[in-house]
Design a protein around this nucleic acid. Sequence first.
DNA 1: ATGCATGAGTA
DNA 2: ACTCATGCATA
Length: 355
Amino acid sequence: MMSMNSKQPFSMHPMLHEPKYTPLHSSSEAIRRACLPTPSLQGNIFAGFDETLLQRAEALAAVDIVAQKSHPFKPDATYHTMTSMTSMTCTPTSSSAHLHHPSVLTSHHHPGHHQPAQGLEGDLLDHLTPGISLGGMSTSDVCSTASHTAHAAAAAHMSAINHMQHHHHHHHTQSMNMHAHGLGSHGSLGGSGGADAEPDPRELESFAERFKQRRIKLGVTQADVGSALANLKIPGVGCLSQSTICRFESLTLSHNNMVALKPILEAWLEEAERAQREKMSKPEIFNGGDKKRKRTSIAAPEKRSLEAYFAVQPRPSSEKIAAIAEKLDLKKNVVRVWFCNQRQKQKRMKFSATH
DNA sequence: ATGCATGAGTA
DNA sequence: ACTCATGCATA
């Protein structure tokens, strides 16, 4: 079933499955695509290029250390010991069903990628400037220690604290209108004139801000919002995690994701404010789930190396990943996932270029 | 707030 | 095996 992939009722052009955003920041795509030009790759004489890459990248990483900040936390003693877990996938058996796939909002447009040749590392490395290649990546961390996210903001009022709603709803239905914004035309919609579908990054930005503001005013935490969403009974919409709400508010989601989530959170907001008005009371149960997934922690040195590799080749081949994994003494899967996540990060709104 | 991970849907 | 949307665990 093609299901959700079907975006607009009126198929614009079967070929244009590129629901890319407004011309304003459509470059996030361009960026990643732009890194494939391979000027020269004939140099890889022998099979030593893999080793070379690793060595060079690590060398860069070393430089990085100096130029980088050394977090106040653990210098490096991080226990990446557990990276040896073969299938840490703690059998999902654990009560809390893992069945959820609230991907109602998925837009799955294929990003037509490519298989960039992998012989350019050597060259690239040679032309790379330590500061440049790695500077923009690792510094992204640093969270404001004071995450006064109104944690205990007394959600006394409407605390629809429904953790653990073992959703088993298979909402594949509704596929948000991922609309292929008419690139070029869309005037400006000064104040959301187009009802609910505005692919405007600016609009999303302001909404996210207002959302957070009003949410806090309601005295509700991000987690509360997430679980309360289930009470909205919006077909195909279950609950969301604190993470997602947080990311929405901080715009650290993909554009499409933001667009898809907006109407839902908007609906919740209004419902919440309405409910507060009439002093309601929602029955809250508790939760009851226990499953401890251990979060692998990649030590700083390894992380730096990975970043160095990434700067050169964001999409290493399976073999390359294996090599890197072995070099850094990490599970291949850990490395693979790391690269995937890294790529995803680059696509997020907030820091995505042109924004 | 964010790092590492899972899973559905695709290619 | 990747992308994307999400989530658990944790700094």
